[in-house]
Design a protein around this nucleic acid. Structure first.
Lengths: 245, 245
DNA sequence: AAGTGGTCTAGACCACTGT
DNA sequence: CAGTGGTCTAGACCACTTT
């Protein structure tokens, strides 16, 4: 079977990216079946009128995504398994919306408060200095799903309550021009306190899933510190890991 | 300040890798301080007697690791924050050993059993066909920490009980020549059943951290399906996420 | 022996950022 | 404007795998 590939040299989209998108679409689509060989790079380059490094760049990006495997002396193959998207730095809001759950948010607190020692350490600001504190209850289908407490350094973002209820914090940060770069996460579990239980309509002592996260922008500044609790009957963390070679 | 860099052309180690290792060491070491500019690629290439693409390849690998940030028109900078290692496909055994906890393992079950529907689906084998089942209790400092139940397809690995108690399953898989490639994980929480509680010396109903994982090798074959429970007072999942640009 | 990916070179032009 | 990274080319040689 002959894969239809072509590139548009008048497009501003990089050639390697055009190629990788077409290959990815073919894999997603089933046109390139798992285990099938891609054909060697030189022949592929000649067919498309590209240089070999450009073709390699396209292929490499898909290898990095875990969709292709390269073997010296053998060739490039489509991975056999059902590879899903790897773990993204996504917000609960986006996760829910993608799952068609129509998320709702109730903002419980939106204030400027002095930083506690813990918050100060996470955000690398002086203890007692002013930070934003946002507490939100996230609901899906009218049922409480998670309680989210976030702290942000001052001056980064205009934390409008109406906007917080209409979208996710990450989306607001991105549209404010922040480039999110990395995050340090810790996921655990513990029993619900009386106050938490009431907020999440769970019995006291019920198991809860907890997540703490500090997010950094591309300059390495801490831009957000979150302390979240989830109802484990309603939410779990799912993700794909790739082994770094 | 002038960074000392050099490459050894007689070494079998790729030039770009020699360079990236030296840069990484300099960052780790503090010789390259956060925020500092790396100097442009062309000058760096000239200084080392390398071509620009080779230098770019070295830099790109560190950008992928989250240690460097590139900006058009600006330059390449060391990221400001304390970037730790991203999430690896590591075993609990390795995690504990790295933390100096002297892990111990007690193998509770090591048998060949017919695959349940769930196991069969995860491993992509026929329901009822023979699979290996391993149940282990993991202890640290003599205290139970996690209960691990794993299923493996037949014929992959020699599951020696003594070896299972001395090392981790992942390490055994790797030394058997398997190339682990990716894994699909789900992390959640729930209350302990009576049997689980007893095994982990927790009260019945205590919150537990749960993890299910299917691991694939580089051909996309499922090579392991694990269903693990952890005592949240003893263990949490910690990891670093990088945003894919 | 033949074919594959892995590495490397020495250029080139462009897009974006800062002054 | 000058300087940076982003993209691209047309070759080359090597290491590895399979036949």
């Amino acid at each position: 079977m002959r894969l239809e590939l072509s590139v548009d040299r008048s497009s501003p989209v990089p050639l390697y990216f055009q190629l990788s998108q077409q290959l990815e679409a073919a894999i997603e689509h089933g046109t390139l079946t798992p285990g099938s060989l891609l054909g060697n790079e030189i022949e592929l380059a000649a067919r498309l009128g590209l240089s070999r490094p450009t073709v390699r760049q396209a292929i490499q990006s898909l290898v990095d995504k875990g969709l292709l495997v390269r073997r010296r002396g053998v060739g490039t193959q489509v991975v056999h398994s059902q590879v899903k998207r790897p773990l993204e730095l996504s917000s609960l809001f986006d996760d829910l919306e993608a799952a068609g759950q129509r998320p709702a948010t109730r903002v419980l607190v939106n204030a400027v408060v002095p930083a506690t020692a813990e918050v100060a350490a996470a955000l690398a600001v002086p203890e007692g200095s002013e930070v934003h504190r946002v507490e939100r209850l996230r609901l899906a289908h009218g049922e409480p799903m998670a309680y989210l407490c976030n702290h942000l350094p001052p001056g980064l973002l205009d934390l409008d309550t109406a906007q917080l209820e209409a979208t996710g914090l990450y989306r607001m940060m991105r549209s404010a021009g922040l480039t999110l770069h990395s995050a340090r996460q810790s996921i655990g579990a513990r029993a619900a306190t009386a106050a938490e239980a009431e907020r999440l309509t769970e019995p006291e002592g019920a198991p809860l899933l907890t997540m703490r996260r500090t997010t950094f922008d591309d300059t390495g500044r801490a831009v957000e510190f979150g302390d979240h609790i989830y109802r484990p009957s309603r939410y779990a963390f799912e993700f794909q890991l790739l082994v770094r070679p």
